[in-house]
Every structure is written in C-alpha cells, then in structure tokens.
Design a protein around this nucleic acid. Structure first.
Lengths: 186, 186
DNA sequence: CACTTGCAAGTAAATGCTCACATACCGCCA
DNA sequence: TGGCGGTATGTGAGCATTTACTTGCAAGTG
C-alpha cells in the first residue's frame, strides 16, 4: 500500500492533537509506519503538508455551504442548509473537520480572501436577506459570526469530548433552530 | 522597573500571536527587553509560564460569570449577565482574553474539571432554568455550547480582524438578544 | 533501462534551559 | 548615618537535545 495516504491520515491526527508547531515529523512518520524521508518525497516541507490538508478541509466546507445554501430559498431553508453543510463535512471526515476547526487561526495568514471562506459566504447570505427584508437590519459581520458560532462551538465541545460520541448531525435540528433564532433576534 | 510584569506582557503577546509551541523563549525575552535567563528566575519552564497566564485568564472569566450571573434572576437577566462577563473580560485585557480564547485547546489536558470553567457554569444555569420551566427542555450541554458560541465566535472574528477595532462590548446588545434567542429556541 | 517510491543515517540550525558571575535591594546594628 | 551581609534579580555565553530536512542507496514498476 502506498505511503502517501497513510502519511496524510497520520499527519491529520497528529496535527489535530498537537497543533502544527507541536507536531513533529518523527511522530507523523512513526504513526504512518513510514520513514521520515518518505514524507519529503511527497511534500517539500512540514508546513506544505499542513497547508495542503487545511486547504482541502477549507475548500470542502466552503463548497458544501455554497452548494447547500445556493439550492434553497428563504432564511429558514438557508439556516438549515448551513447547518447541514457543517454536519456533512463533520460526519464524512471528523478528523479533517476538527483539524480545520481547531487550527484555523494558524492558517489565517495564508489563505487569500477570495470571498470563498465560510464566514464571508454566510455574511453575503445575510446581507442579501436583510436587503430583501427577510431579516431585521444589523451588522452582517456580527450576525454571521454569531450564527456560525452556534455550530462551531458545538463542534468544538464535541472535539473536547464534552458531547459524547454522537455524530455532529445528531444535533442538527437543535442547531438549525438556534441558528434561525440568532438570525431573527435583535 | 521589574522584569516580571514585562515578561508576562511580552509572553502573552507572543503566545497569542504564535501559539505556545510556536513561541520561543528568545522572542519573548527580546520583546520584554530582558535576557532569556530572566524568564527562568520567575518560572520553571516556558510551559509553566504559559499555564500561569492561561489559568489567570480562565479564573478571571469564570469568576466574572459566577458573579454576574449569580447576582440576577430569570433567564433574560442571566443571558445579559453572561454576555457582560465575557465583554468585561475582553475589554479589561484583550490580549489576555484572546490568548485564552485562541489557545484553549492547548490547555484542556491541564485544568482539572472542578466545574468552575465557563462551559460547565453555563450548563448548570441552563439545567436549573429548565427545571424551573423557564426554558424548553433539551440537552443542556448542546444548548450551553450554542449560547457560548454566539459570544466566542464573535470574539474570535474580532481577534481575526474581521470586526474592526471596536471593543467587544460594542456588540453586547446584539449578542445578548442572540444568546437569549438560542436559549429559547427549539 | 528510466523512473518513482521508500529507507537509514546524517547534518546544520534551533530550542529550552543552566550556570558562573554581576548588581540592586534591604534590614540590621554600631 | 553608614557600612555589612544576605538575598533576590538580571546577564549572556554556552550546553545537550531536538528539529526539519538531505542524501546516497536500494528495491519495485512498467
């Protein structure tokens, strides 16, 4: 079996557990049952490996949000779509998702803001809904942050082991109601 | 002027910017305009320094939540108190607060759960309110996470520079309404 | 053969931390 | 008051270890 996917999995787990700076190439190699040199056959540096994994998660989540939210109309449906996007990403690869969640701030300097990150996407949805009077007025940046916070903090607490082993989607109905309530609250 | 407080400030800034593992003792010393050795006159290790700072922030926030929420009655007032506690902590020392916010997961293994962390405190408030039928039933762990997420994600986006330079408390009314909406939503 | 993938041993640089030494501070008693 | 000793504080060169990464070689593949 090829080493590359094994290294990716191992790196993901180690990065999620120890952070990018706390992770060592030795640990990653050991976990993948591969020599350290093997890593450098496929990536130029530890950081390139980390960035690649992070961007994959980032893109996956952004794509899901765009697809789910773009397919429906009305605030309630958009809220449900947002929750569904996060839950799908979390359920289909929890390690990748939690790595993205917990290490976000490490990579902020890297990703160019092409407006395709989750926060900006949600901001735009909210702005549009406010224009159409489907939502009461208010700073869209703050409203977006609060709505996303409902989901991400729940996911974080799950990552911290405070919510048991249920999939994130087990809490989707509750989160959907809460996101919608946040959007409408003022 | 004594070096200890200067080191604490410098460490806080460097930890917040680079993370605990990414921060070097050399950088901290340089920023504090102090020799590296001076750090070790006051702390046994870099980690001890980091843990000390983190715990100070952790305790401050927990104390504020306990005090503010303990002084009022009713769900609406408790929600306002929670927001006020976070805003006070953030406004009185933003560097300390954002360090605590962004590096939380690094210190999770350390703090013994004596039930005095912010999440547990909020969970207990919610449980009690549900018992008294002031809130609709639901998993208190998830409801607490969602309510806190409204505040922490807003703070995180501010830390990421997405909300301008206003104090966190500038958004307190909006956050209070949102937290209350989350608590009641189902 | 050409090319990719993997290994084991190694390298230079960096990191956290120490230690011998210097200086500032402070109570104490003549 | 002023000199004295003990302690707390700060220095910076230096140490052992760890780190990311490299390199020469071998085996698999087509």
């Amino acid at each position: 079996m090829s080493a590359k996917p094994r290294i990716e999995r191992a790196a993901l787990e180690v990065f999620a557990a120890h952070g990018v700076d706390g992770a060592t190439t030795k640990l990653i190699a050991a976990r993948a049952e591969v020599s350290e040199g093997a890593i450098y056959r496929h990536w130029k540096s530890k950081d390139e490996l980390a960035i690649g994994l992070f961007m994959a998660a980032h893109k996956r989540l952004s794509d899901l949000i765009e697809a789910e939210a773009g397919a429906v109309h009305g605030v309630a449906a958009k809220a449900a779509a947002l929750v569904k996007a996060y839950c799908t990403a979390a359920d289909e690869d929890w390690t990748l998702f939690s790595f993205h969640l917990l290490q976000l701030h490490h990579f902020l300097p890297y990703y160019q803001d092409d407006g395709r990150d989750p926060v900006t996407l949600v901001e735009m949805i909210i702005k549009y809904a406010m224009m159409k009077m489907e939502l009461p007025p208010g700073d869209p940046r703050v409203v977006a942050a609060m709505a996303i916070g409902v989901i991400t903090q729940t996911a974080q607490n799950k990552a911290y082991g405070r919510l048991g082993d249920d999939a994130l989607s087990a809490h989707a109905p509750l989160m959907t109601a809460a996101v919608l309530a946040v959007l409408k609250a003022r």
